[in-house]
């Protein structure tokens, strides 16, 4: 879950940076689908009547970041990728728009990396996730009963418990679990999504649900630092879906592209240099809005 969550973090960071730029340049846009808070489409944009799918790429290799910061033209022969299954779905029409963005930044993947960034006074976001359907409320939507956390470590543990209540509303509860002792979550959770720690817990944390009659042990190695140590955001360019269809080619999973050593899925792909400039899109939208 660590790499997947950091990709989500990077994608939202790029999208928010783009929205700030649109605001600063008085380019009007709508936010679509702000429905349930778990909906992934919450951050989707609509510009000038066209739906926008922002595709973000997270560049984490130090040499690549150095090259990119020195010369942004490094991006021109990176790949504008759209996963083929998404491309073939009917979520976007041919007049809708793909925008391609990049975040250059570092990850703290290993526990030693997290220790180093803490020593340097940098932020961390340590998250342990729950993948079992019962804890996530997927098997049955019912209260998890009393949730009790046991801290196996020698120091009090400051945590945040994140989940959902009966009406699927977000619940975030701070909780301090004393050393080698228990503490109960006050809120009645129907789904337990994550625990967050502010320091790397040196020992295990056992989570007990009175309704499930089960205990889930979170080990020290289960904490993922999902903070992204960003440096630069680039918005490379855009094409309509119809244009992208004409100009892109199929790229098998496992292919090397400039920004990734191996792609994870089958994509449609074209070089970044074949896109249209984002300033042109902004100008068109302003013209559209003033008509």
């Amino acid at each position: 879950p660590g790499p997947r969550l950091r990709k989500i973090v990077a994608g939202v960071a790029v999208e928010l940076a783009l929205r700030r730029w649109l605001d600063a340049n008085q380019v009007p846009y709508d936010l679509l689908g702000a429905t349930a808070f778990t909906e992934r489409d919450k951050y989707d944009l609509r510009l000038g009547g066209r739906r926008v799918d922002l595709k973000s790429f997270f560049i984490t290799d130090r040499d690549d970041i150095t090259a990119l910061r020195h010369d942004p033209g490094w991006l021109l022969d990176a790949a504008a990728l759209v996963p083929e299954d998404q491309f073939n779905s009917h979520k976007l029409e041919d007049g809708d728009v793909y925008v391609f963005g990049f975040l250059a930044g570092l990850e703290a993947r290993q526990q030693a990396d997290t220790r180093r960034v803490l020593d340097a006074g940098q932020p961390v976001e340590l998250v342990a996730t729950f993948v079992d359907d019962d804890w996530l409320g997927r098997a049955q939507w019912r209260s998890l009963g009393t949730l009790t956390l046991h801290n196996d470590g020698p120091l009090p543990l400051e945590l945040e418990v994140g989940g959902q209540g009966r009406d699927r509303e977000a619940i975030v509860e701070p909780l301090v679990v004393p050393a080698e002792a228990r503490a109960a979550v006050a809120a009645r959770l129907y789904a337990l999504l994550y625990l967050r720690a502010f320091q790397p817990p040196p020992a295990g944390v056992d989570v007990r649900s009175s309704a499930l009659h089960r205990t889930h042990s979170v080990l020290p190695s289960d904490w993922h630092n999902i903070w992204v140590y960003g440096m630069d955001v680039f918005i490379a360019g855009w094409l309509t879906k119809g244009e992208f269809r004409e100009r892109s080619r199929r790229l098998p999973a496992g292919s090397r592209v400039k920004q990734y050593p191996r792609t994870q899925t089958v994509n449609r792909s074209l070089p970044i240099r074949d896109l249209r400039p984002i300033t042109e899109l902004a100008r068109r939208i302003k013209d559209f809005a003033s008509r």
């Binding site: 969550l5 939202v12 960071a13 808070f37 976001e125 955001v233 400039p277 300033t279």
Partner: peptide
């Protein structure tokens, strides 16, 4: 065809990551 001058470089600050982190946790 894009040139390097067409690429839009935007400032980064931690509030971008903070927004992403809060979103990622809720998307679990």
């Amino acid at each position: 065809m894009l040139t390097a001058l067409d690429l839009l470089r935007l400032p980064y600050d931690d509030s971008l990551t903070r927004a992403g982190v809060e979103y990622a946790k809720k998307s679990l």
